[in-house]
Simulated assay, not measured.
Amino acid sequence: MGSLTIDNVRKRYGRTEVLKGIDIDVTDGEFIILVGPSGCGKSTLLSMIAGLETISDGEVRIDGQRVNDRGPKDRDIAMVFQSYALYPNMNVRQNIEFGLEMRGVAKDERRRIVERVAETLQMGDLLERRPGQLSGGQRQRVAMGRAMAREPAVFLFDEPLSNLDAKLRVEMRTEIKELHRRTGTTTVYVTHDQIEAMTLGDRIAVMKDGEIQQLGTPQEVYDEPANRFVAGFMGSPSMNFIKCRLEGAGDGVTAVAEANTGPLRLPLPAERCNGLTGRIGDEIILGLRPEQITAQGDADGAKEDVHVASCEVELTEPTGPDTLLFFHINGERVVGRTRPEHAPGPGETLPLAFNLSRAVVFCPNTAERLA
């Protein structure tokens, strides 16, 4: 295992700065996710860790050793790409051991390593096949096996599941998580898929425009987003953003909006009101996850934090385990969830329970979180 330090790393192409001072400390054995939309700089950062891109400013350290000027082969890393990059004229065994052979590893040792890797990835019966005889998932396992054979200090994954179909992505996600559990190797994983980020990572770095917007555990990023971008990017369907006006009486703060059935008054719990009492009368953005808006019959959360209001449901989408509800507040489409047995028909007015225990408040001007 090995630690990884990314210290104020910047990348410039001419006058264009694409990475703007990235700081991440990855501890031994940690699984870190770099997630964000296309063009945010996550793959560029991974390439700089790998030594495939030069670093304009800052340092990358592996196990405390500065590696800025070292080539990829001297950094004790192994990388798995989106494309499998297998040698088509070699069988699986030869693909896995090729790098070991180039490093001068003895034949008996190469055989031992290949057998260990094949057992770990459950592909012992594939060793004599060529890549053209394998499925996409099997090819990705071979690419992972080739990286594992190096026994690196750090694994780097660059969107390894993007070429797989939905069912296979779920299966490979589980395999990657199990692989990390067994090997304990420090891992940096790049993806644009927030489901992969939530299920795989010990911590997630959410990136936008070359900067880290938030770094935290999956639950921290989901429940306590630092700003509106993070809140909207993480979660499917994404968080609802409702324009409200703050009203207050005593120590209480209420978010007031206009639903399609009339005024909607949502009293915020005390723990969600820090710093809001000075904003009475101001406009704010109230963030609620779809699972926080349900039919009254299947509301969760503490009773005092659930507020019931009737809204006209305009559209429903069955997903199997639950049904999505679509309605409008202040002209914005809002999404809720409910159990199929509680799902109304389009055009029906339904009592909805708004669970405010995890409501998030954002500034409408800066998009930063207020409370």
Rank of each mutant, 00 (worst) to 15 (best):
G262K: 06
N227P: 14
V253F: 05
Y189H: 04
T191L: 10
V190K: 07
E196H: 08
M239Y: 08
T199G: 13
Y222D: 04
E258A: 12
V253P: 10
G252N: 14
L215W: 06
V221K: 06
F229D: 09
E258T: 14
A257S: 11
D202F: 07
G210Y: 04
M234G: 07
E220N: 11
Y189F: 14
V206D: 11
P225G: 01
K208D: 12
V190T: 01
Y222T: 03
G235Q: 12
E224K: 15
V190N: 03
G262Q: 09
E211A: 15
E258K: 13
I204E: 03
Q219Y: 07
V256A: 10
V206N: 11
P225T: 02
F241T: 07
N227R: 10
A257Y: 12
A205I: 02
D202S: 13
R228Y: 01
A231M: 08
I242W: 02
C244E: 04
G216K: 06
V230N: 04
V253Y: 03
D223S: 08
F241P: 13
V206I: 08
I212S: 04
F229N: 10
R245K: 14
N260S: 12
E196M: 06
G235V: 13
F233D: 04
S236R: 14
G262R: 12
G248V: 00
P225W: 01
Y222P: 07
D223K: 12
A205L: 10
L215P: 00
A226H: 11
A249E: 15
T191D: 10
P237Y: 02
T199V: 15
Q194A: 07
F241Y: 11
G250N: 09
F241K: 02
P237I: 02
I212V: 09
Y222K: 10
P263G: 12
C244D: 02
